[in-house]
Design a protein around this nucleic acid. Structure first.
Length: 416
RNA sequence: CGGAGUGUAGUAUAGUGGCAGUAUAAAUGCUUUGGGAGCAUUAGGUCCGAGUUCGAUUCUCGGCACUCCGACCA
């Protein structure tokens, strides 16, 4: 993409109504636009990051048998009354609205009810199970206080998968698979080393649920970490008994601030009972379906990546999620430079390498460099008069700052 | 939801009961061109409502918005 076609602009100064680093940088760089507290629009660059994250998650979900669908945003009150979660005393952060005929609907706030209700129509026999539907979806929560930029919003985009299994044993097999899938996802988006499987409070059907917590001072959670075994315990359940039951030693645990980027949860029959979600086994006996839920907040994940990698100059995207892999900078107003940059731009496009080409005219070198650092593409290729007279290009690694001089024809195979 | 604070130009900030200033972004011209350039010119602003006052951006009250601390986060 040519940068001259991009309507967003960078800003030097952070907005006064944001203190979270992720929001400050993403707004300054033109990835997101703040609509109101806890509500952000995703601008062209921001959307590209979200889509990259979405693709990584989708791939892993499909590998473990996930099947993508899309549930509605407007939610039927009657369905939520079955699980008693329409009740304001039970759930106090719904966005509810009225239909013209006076009826009430809600903006989807989580997905258990929607899935249980739909799947009841399609699950009859043990032959129908297990199944693992999921969707990517906007979720709305009327938080009394949203904060931390895009890490805790009133409107956010998430992936939620629900597992429908015949029994607990079958459920457990899938549950273990999702742990691996989740760890793969966090590896792929670049925060694997910083992300720990964390034991958190379970529910009726299991002692623990599991969160994936990423170390960052921007996080809202406190966890106790065993770095050797790569597991952690959330402060909310941290006590001697829990430490012991997990085979850990208290004096080997380190306290850390972290953000919950994903969680997996055994639901058991909590929802299949109120929805009367049953199947017949091979003896004709009826049993409740055994459920689990598996969520990842994409905006929160994107914000976490910014928090974790940014430096004083701006954002640093891991290659896998960067809106463009390469930022091609044309330096100086020179016809020869422009022609050379155009050629390289076309070559990169032909090689299917995603490139943002800073073709803006009459912008000084310093400003282009500063913008490129703020925007945070993993590599910058610099074309200038100085470079083309020697037949070389400058390749700069945004993260390390390392600069390599490469031949013009080397661009073909550098980034495959 | 409890507590605290802030609303001034597109953005970031000064300041004042009596003509609202600076930086930056924007527009025009000239110069400049490897780390957010220089000069000149132009355009652009006091969140909304009520009250006090000769006069309110400033003081008072109400509303709205935003931020922070806490609670909540199924």
């Amino acid at each position: 993409m040519k940068q001259s076609q991009l309507f967003t602009k960078t800003r030097k100064e952070a907005p006064k109504d944001e203190t979270a680093k992720n929001a400050q940088l993403l707004i300054r760089a033109g990835y997101i636009y703040k609509e109101m507290a806890g509500v952000y629009s995703y601008l062209p660059l921001g959307l590209r990051v979200m889509k990259n994250i979405e693709d990584i998650i989708r791939e892993e979900m499909n590998i473990i048998g996930g099947i993508e669908m899309k549930t509605s945003i407007l939610q039927n009150k009657e369905i939520w009354e079955k699980s008693d979660r329409w009740n304001d005393n039970v759930v106090n952060n719904w966005f509810k609205t009225k239909l013209k005929n006076g009826g009430e609907v809600g903006l989807s706030f989580t997905n258990e009810e929607a899935y249980s209700n739909i799947l009841k129509r399609y699950i009859n026999s043990y032959k129908d199970l297990p199944i693992y539907p999921y969707d990517f979806k906007e979720i709305f929560r009327n938080e009394t206080r949203s904060k931390s930029g895009i890490m805790r919003g009133r409107e956010f985009y998430w992936k939620a998968l629900y597992s429908f299994s015949k029994d607990e044993a079958e459920h457990n097999i899938f549950y273990e698979k999702t742990k691996i899938a989740y760890q793969n996802i966090f590896e792929k988006v670049g925060i694997g080393d910083l992300t720990y499987l964390t034991f958190a409070s379970g529910g009726t059907f299991s002692k623990f649920s599991h969160e994936f917590q990423t170390f960052t001072e921007a996080g809202e959670d406190t966890i106790y970490v065993d770095e050797k075994n790569k597991i952690a315990i959330n402060k909310e359940i941290y006590n001697d008994e829990v430490v012991k039951s997990l085979g850990l030693k208290k004096d080997e645990l380190i306290e850390k601030k972290a953000v919950e980027v994903g969680n997996i949860f055994t639901l058991g029959t909590k929802f299949s009972e109120p929805f009367d979600l049953k199947y017949k086994n091979n003896k004709g006996e009826e049993n409740y379906v055994f459920m689990g839920s598996y969520g990842i907040g994409l905006g929160r994940l994107m914000g976490t990546i910014v928090e974790v990698f940014a430096d004083s100059k701006g954002i640093i995207w891991p290659e896998t999620v960067a809106p463009f892999k390469i930022h091609l900078l044309e330096i100086g107003n020179d016809e020869k430079v422009r022609k050379e940059a155009e050629i390289i731009y076309k070559k990169l496009l032909d090689s299917k390498i995603e490139v943002l080409y800073d073709d803006r005219e009459n912008i000084r070198a310093g400003e282009k460099f500063a913008d490129a650092d703020l925007l945070g593409m993993p590599y910058q290729i610099i074309v200038s008069e100085k470079n083309i007279t020697t037949g070389k290009l400058e390749l700069k690694n945004r993260k390390t700052g390392e600069v390599k001089m490469i031949d013009e024809n080397e661009t073909d195979n550098l980034f495959i």
